[in-house]
Simulated scan of single mutants.
Amino acid sequence: MGSIKAFGAQSAESGVHPLPIERRAPRPDDVAIKIDYCGVCHTDIHFAENDWGRTLYPVVPGHEIIGRVTAVGEKVKKFKVGDVVGVGCLVDACRHCAACEDGLEQYCLEGSTATYNGRDRHDQSITFGGYSEAVVVSERFVLRIPDALDPATSAPILCAGITTYSPLRHYGVKAGDQVGVVGMGGLGHMGVKFAKALGAEVTLFTRSESKVGEAKKQGADRVVVSTDKEQMKAIAGQLDFILDTVPVQHDLNPYLNALRYDGKHILVGLLEPVEPPVQAGALVGKRRVLGGSLIGGLPETQEVLDFCAEHGISCDVEMLDINHINEAYERMKKGDVKYRFVIDMKTL
């Protein structure tokens, strides 16, 4: 491919600006993709600003990629030129460990390769993401976008969608279950939609009274303002499952007490130490489970795309001119987007 246009960060303080990058020519199992849309995830901000102390600069963010196939390698069988496809959070893994053989490449025992800020397993070059004109990815890590889905609103399904769908499916949420969703952002609103589509009755937890009406519009059957002790007391012991999408430290104990015995509280947003500490008695006394979940493997990501097409589910998005990406980051930090930005790459 050679040199293409992209946007990236040169340092933690630089912001995201035009940054030409090199893309490889397709290998025999590769698919070359012209990018039409790229979702903006809060993880993009963390890497652009080195919040986690492991950014490899320059960094080109973007792991919610939708585009059209422009070329395929000689060994590619599943895709052809013109197909609408997606690329999510991963572009490679060892492919032979127990996790990879189970279609759980996100848990690859040798370490999976992230779509950006990773290391190519062939030549150790830094991987660059979807804030760019085009990308080249191994066929195994390319996803088919169903015709029924709008490509623009499908982009966040590749991260926000699979992150919330995977634990609901893994832990067996089914019709009639009582499911709680903590947080009403990009992940939370998708969690509500998926739980409803699976037949559950959904309770949305929010700290803000202003989000009560908004949550019900998204399909929540009940909304609990988590700062109201009486409302939290009233829901104690009622839920089978809690999907916790909040990405910052928060007290888990009141939510654990909202679970029935054998209830499960799954974290998908929090990567920091839990503060304040979890009261172990709340787990032991009711055989409750506190766990975590990370995106999904390639088979499950294809499954969620097909599920969305079948059930008419899409992410609520605001389209973005890439030249305004730094302003978008500032708005995201303030929670001022409903619920995900998606870059129209024609603005690159």
Rank of each mutant, 00 (worst) to 15 (best):
205 F>C: 10
69 V>K: 07
210 S>W: 02
185 G>L: 10
156 P>F: 14
266 I>D: 00
257 N>I: 08
330 E>A: 14
244 D>I: 05
115 T>Q: 13
153 T>C: 13
113 T>I: 15
171 Y>C: 05
39 G>F: 06
253 N>W: 10
212 V>C: 05
263 G>Q: 08
39 G>M: 08
159 C>M: 04
138 S>L: 05
30 D>V: 10
212 V>R: 06
248 V>H: 15
66 I>F: 09
303 E>A: 06
322 I>Y: 03
226 S>Q: 09
109 L>I: 04
72 V>K: 13
258 A>Q: 03
10 Q>I: 13
112 S>T: 08
150 D>G: 10
231 Q>H: 01
103 G>C: 07
161 G>Y: 00
266 I>N: 00
332 M>Q: 14
71 A>T: 04
116 Y>N: 02
136 V>W: 12
319 M>C: 02
237 G>Q: 14
92 D>I: 14
253 N>I: 07
75 K>C: 04
264 K>L: 00
51 D>S: 13
144 R>G: 04
173 V>K: 00
305 L>G: 03
251 D>G: 05
252 L>I: 03
154 S>F: 01
40 V>C: 08
244 D>Q: 06
91 V>E: 00
34 K>W: 02
242 I>S: 03
190 M>P: 00
217 K>H: 05
203 T>W: 07
215 A>D: 12
37 Y>H: 15
35 I>H: 12
113 T>N: 08
187 L>V: 10
175 A>P: 01
339 Y>Q: 04
137 V>M: 09
229 K>I: 01
292 G>I: 10
200 A>Y: 00
284 V>R: 14
337 V>L: 05
162 I>D: 00
190 M>Q: 11
268 V>A: 04
172 G>L: 12
8 G>I: 12
11 S>H: 06
163 T>P: 01
71 A>R: 15
246 V>Q: 06
137 V>C: 06
77 K>S: 12
216 K>S: 05
212 V>N: 01
154 S>L: 01
41 C>E: 02
73 G>T: 11
157 I>K: 02
313 I>G: 01
227 T>A: 10
252 L>V: 08
67 G>R: 15
156 P>Y: 11
106 Q>L: 08
170 H>I: 13
55 T>V: 12
225 V>T: 09
8 G>W: 03
280 A>I: 09
43 T>M: 10
175 A>G: 12
83 D>H: 10
294 L>C: 13
339 Y>H: 14
317 V>S: 02
177 D>R: 05
255 Y>S: 08
119 R>Q: 12
143 L>K: 06
208 S>K: 14
178 Q>E: 11
251 D>W: 07
151 P>V: 10
179 V>K: 00
187 L>C: 05
64 E>Y: 07
94 C>G: 08
74 E>Q: 14
125 S>L: 12
46 H>P: 00
145 I>K: 13
158 L>E: 04
142 V>E: 08
287 R>N: 11
88 G>S: 07
76 V>I: 09
280 A>F: 14
293 S>R: 03
19 L>P: 03
318 E>L: 04
